[in-house]
Design a protein around this nucleic acid. Structure first.
Length: 418
RNA sequence: GUGAGCGUGGCCUAGCGGUUUAGGGCGCCAGGUUGUGGCCCUGGAGAUCGGGGGUUCGAAUCCCCUCGCUCACCCCA
């Protein structure tokens, strides 16, 4: 027997309303903030992610689905959405449009990772990016958009974790301080941290190992070393967020797993934090476009995991709006009646009434049983008798009198809601 | 990549070495009503007990491997 590959899942019809709910809400709010949709390829040149996401990240080191196509090209199923969008911005000269260019996208992402709740090998995220503007107002606007979507979905108890990790001006000096601080402590921290000390010192602050916590507690805080520009940017952002009534938790230890971030970084955490804390997250990446061979382009963005949002919706007992379900079931007996039934059903559908017709030569009883199980409001009954009289029987499934109407009248009545 | 728990028809599950041709509930299909559902009754289909190998006279039940799920670590959406 075949099974869906590890870490992937089938979304069955019962599950689909959750997805539609999240996607519709996101689209609705994206439009209100002036974000336009972009769709980019599912795979890209491997080099895009090597340079974009960062060579020392876990994603690039061990989680990418990389393959060679028949032409010998090195390709990778995208592990995240931002690199593609920046690539498209550069490739299509979007810098010549009014800045910032505000974009959103629903992306399917792939990471080779050990699956568990809220973590899959194929997963989906909603991505928003604003490219070409440095103003912290854009950071605030973007974060507010994400927050409003969570609110519109009805999620409660979320916290916004916010930090600034500086830029090319102030971060190198800070990293030097951090290294100096850690040098005498290296013997006391875990192996991962000893490696991070070399490859990615910022991540030292992010370690969860108990032995490393004392070192982290005494470590210099990046926030104290921000250059004037970064500090100003951060202060302005906080003001905007306060004005937007978004409760912010300053988290000096918040660091993100992708290398391209500068200044603003943030994550949104659900109240009941499992292992997979982040519902969504993002930040500013002013150096990425240049890194990918474009002109220097300031930008901010976020991604939120659809599966994780849905998990949180369920945990909070939030039920998505139901999708249109069949409201009418046309049952019949006999060949002649079947043709009349199919014609009637088709007319109902053209009038916008979701309608099902009995199939498979079932008995009237079996057809009504189905109609009942499907929860339709009305059954329409057609047999030789009705055919001879030029009528159809309208049967309210909730109980009550049946009524005989001419087919045209029945269509009108059902189209009007019964 | 590391550690732990679990895996019986579509779903929930009983059975945990020998009246098992694997039992029940839900769901599905049909009959009880030669054209009328929901309740009830009856019947039917549907399981190589995740897969493979081994131990044994005998395995769903014990052992090994493998696949998958869950949880924690790690990482992140």
């Amino acid at each position: 027997m075949f099974q869906a590959p590890r870490g992937t899942q089938d979304i069955l019809p019962e599950e689909a309303p959750y997805w539609t709910f999240v996607e519709q809400t996101a689209r609705d709010w994206a439009a209100r903030y002036g974000y336009g949709e972009i769709r980019t390829p599912t795979f890209e040149d491997t080099g895009l992610f090597l340079r974009g996401v960062g060579g020392s990240t876990d994603i690039v080191e061990k989680e990418m689905y990389t393959f060679q196509d028949k032409g010998g090209g090195e390709l990778t199923l995208r592990p995240e959405g931002t690199a593609s969008i920046v690539r498209a911005y550069i490739e299509h000269g979007l810098a010549s449009r009014p800045q910032p260019v505000r974009l959103f996208s629903f992306v399917t992402c792939f990471r080779y990772d050990r699956p568990q709740r809220g973590r899959y090998r194929e997963f989906h995220q909603w991505d928003c990016e604003a490219l070409g503007e440095l103003d912290p107002l854009v950071d605030a606007e973007l974060i507010t958009l994400l927050w409003r979507v969570y609110q519109a979905l009805g999620l409660r108890g979320l916290t916004l974790q916010l930090n600034s990790i500086g830029d090319a001006q102030c971060r190198p000096a800070y990293l030097e301080r951090l290294r100096e601080y850690y040098r005498p402590l290296l013997a006391t921290v875990c192996g991962d941290c000893q490696r991070r000390y070399q490859t990615n010192p910022l991540r030292l602050l992010d370690c969860k190992n108990p032995p490393c916590q004392t070192a982290i507690a005494g470590a210099p805080r990046l926030l104290d070393y921000l250059c004037a520009e970064c500090a100003e940017h951060f202060a302005a952002l906080r003001t905007y967020l306060t004005d937007a009534d978004i409760p912010v938790e300053l988290n000096p230890r918040l660091v993100r797993g992708l290398d391209y971030y500068t200044k603003t970084v943030f994550e949104v955490w659900p109240a009941a934090a499992g292992a997979q804390t982040a519902l969504g997250g993002g930040g500013r990446y002013d150096g990425l476009a240049e890194q990918l061979g474009g002109r220097p382009t300031p930008a901010v963005g976020f991604a939120t995991g659809i599966e994780r949002v849905i998990l949180t919706l369920k945990a909070q007992g939030i039920v998505p709006p139901a999708l249109p379900a069949p409201r009418v079931y046309v049952a019949y007996l006999g060949d002649a009646a079947r043709r009349a039934a199919v014609r009637l059903a088709d007319r109902l559908r053209q009038r916008g009434v979701p309608t099902l017709v009995g199939v498979g030569g079932r008995s009237m009883r079996a057809q009504l049983r189905q109609a009942n199980a499907l929860g339709v409001a009305w059954a329409v009954l057609i047999g030789d008798d009705e055919l001879a009289r030029g009528v159809v029987q309208l049967k309210p499934m909730a109980g009550g009198e049946e009524l005989a109407l001419a087919p045209e009248a029945a269509v009108e009545r059902l189209a009007a809601g019964g």
